[in-house]
Design a protein around this nucleic acid. Sequence first.
DNA 1: AGTCCGACCGTGAACGATAACATTCTGTAG
DNA 2: CTACAGAATGTTATCGTTCACGGTCGGACT
Lengths: 361, 361
Amino acid sequence: MERGRQPTLGDVAARAKVSKQTISRVINNKGEVAEATRKRVLEAIRELGYQPNALARSLVTSKTLVIGLSVPNIDQPFFPQIARGVEDAAAEAGYSVFLCNASGSQERELNAIERLRGHRVAGIISFNSKLNDETIERAIGGLFPVVMINREISQTHGTVIWPGYESGARLATEHLIRLGRQRILFLGMDLESNVDSSKFAGYKTALEQAGMPVDPELVVRAAGRIGRGFSDLLRGGEQAIREARDRGLEFDAIFASNDLPGVGAMRHLISEGVAIPDEVAIVGFGDANVAGIVTPPLSTVTMPLYEMGATAFHALLDQIDRADHEPRQVSISPQLIIRESSVSSEAALQDQRSPRQRAAG
Amino acid sequence: MERGRQPTLGDVAARAKVSKQTISRVINNKGEVAEATRKRVLEAIRELGYQPNALARSLVTSKTLVIGLSVPNIDQPFFPQIARGVEDAAAEAGYSVFLCNASGSQERELNAIERLRGHRVAGIISFNSKLNDETIERAIGGLFPVVMINREISQTHGTVIWPGYESGARLATEHLIRLGRQRILFLGMDLESNVDSSKFAGYKTALEQAGMPVDPELVVRAAGRIGRGFSDLLRGGEQAIREARDRGLEFDAIFASNDLPGVGAMRHLISEGVAIPDEVAIVGFGDANVAGIVTPPLSTVTMPLYEMGATAFHALLDQIDRADHEPRQVSISPQLIIRESSVSSEAALQDQRSPRQRAAG
DNA sequence: AGTCCGACCGTGAACGATAACATTCTGTAG
DNA sequence: CTACAGAATGTTATCGTTCACGGTCGGACT
């Protein structure tokens, strides 16, 4: 199978019997060109199936219609939806998206950034980076616009998108408190990460405002890392709860900082004959899809992920178009979805109203 | 925030006091260069933070280290795992991946292909294209290598990866037959598509080989399209089964061509008090993650998706590296995972052995 | 008639790299 | 002493575009 050379501006010019410059003018709708020749040119373009070489174009204009999107692991709830939001918005603006899967490894993430730099992308959207500010600064410092999702503040230039993990966790915890739960277990994953620590802060605030104690024993860590498999995370939650019960820990509710360990925890409790939500009420955090499909459906805190992706792209575009752009910070409001893992079906409808209103604020 | 110009070969050359060509030689490890100058050059590169411009490089070599990946909808089980497989393999080989989300629209898919052409990608991996052979031929005919997943045969050049939908569906149906089920409902989505029709063919073959009738009444269509939302597909299955029962259809098993409608169907049956698997046994098709998380866990036919992605990339690389590459066809063997939606937990272990062996063949 | 203007189109340089060829330099064989 | 191989480096052309000019031509205005 021989591979055809793609036609160039010159080929089109020869066929339409005008200079290359005129072809360029037609393509870019820039400068005046007589109606007759424009038609001839378009005809030649069509006949040859000409498609401008973006590489050559970018080389001279030093602009590319390409951005990079770096995620820890596309194969995990949360990220695909964001990616879709980014891709949709980008395609609409004529941009293409390089997908980089960091797999939770710093090395691979840095590697990807280098590659993106080589391609002279117009900007980067980085999700949940494991890299610290200093490293990021060294790798991309000021070279091109960046939007970072899941980063609270940053000395780096660029826009930061921060989902309101704290307020989301507070919504969830307040919901459990309102249900009369006394001992609410916090099931985290990586308590040192800014994501989990924010969620913990929300949990803590809710307890304190209700005048309830924050018992360190009730803070439990589930093994498993973002960037690893799906079932890894499930098992992590399962095991953490098993161990907690083995050592005699008592609790009547769980707030899981991530849905998957939350589901694992729920499965284990059910298999042990614990009644959900009567004996233990559970609320997760993350993705509406997975949480909605389990039995009983898992109450969860969720975010408009698709819109977050689109927002991230538009924020990036703002920076690309105006080099003088000020660093911005965008926050996203999470929303509590109440299902039957925390409230039995009849009661659910009644409680649904008040937290929704809070979520909007 | 001002944006720094990236250093070029020339800048490095000036700093190391050699010609640009020597820099190029060092970077590409091509041609001989004295150890002393090589060191000086590397030092200059490090100091300036130089990163070769892939655009300029590609322009002269007419090779890019970029491929395109087109999927119907990244935000849906199946695709993220494939994408990860592709991205991992690509990154290892130094390639970057353009992600294109066709959203199930032909127009957007063609659009994406045009964009990819403009970027002179080295090849394209297209998943489950809605486009017919003729359109594809016109859009990319012979211009660059293509690997198509989910396409049985094709007049087009290029490699085709075809998951064994037919044999997978046969495994599932045989499993249900072996359980003594007499009236097995086929729950499809888009019976006209090559994917669903292959699955139907497998279903039919299994019935015929067992000497059982193929009742057209038992072929039911779930609304909802790939490319739409998650819950869309769930509801489609739910509704289809509701309607089937409303019109008095009787069945003791369901083979769902896609997990999501299968789960929807199961949920509806459970809510109606139908015992799973005693009264109705269910087997789905698709993704192990989602199917494993529902209650009861859904038996399903699944495929090594991550490996499929990696395989697709390597097949593409083969074509890229050797222009004379012959069109190939790769097939993937599906595997039946038996869970409690078809067999109660004790019985499951016994039946597990025989279908596994068939899947390997 | 001369001038000027606007519409239309072409020319040459540049972008940042590599390919192919040319040059310099050193050491060694004839 | 000359020639010549081979290592080390430099020169020039090229990839496919766009940019910043410059030219031509016809007509309106003075």
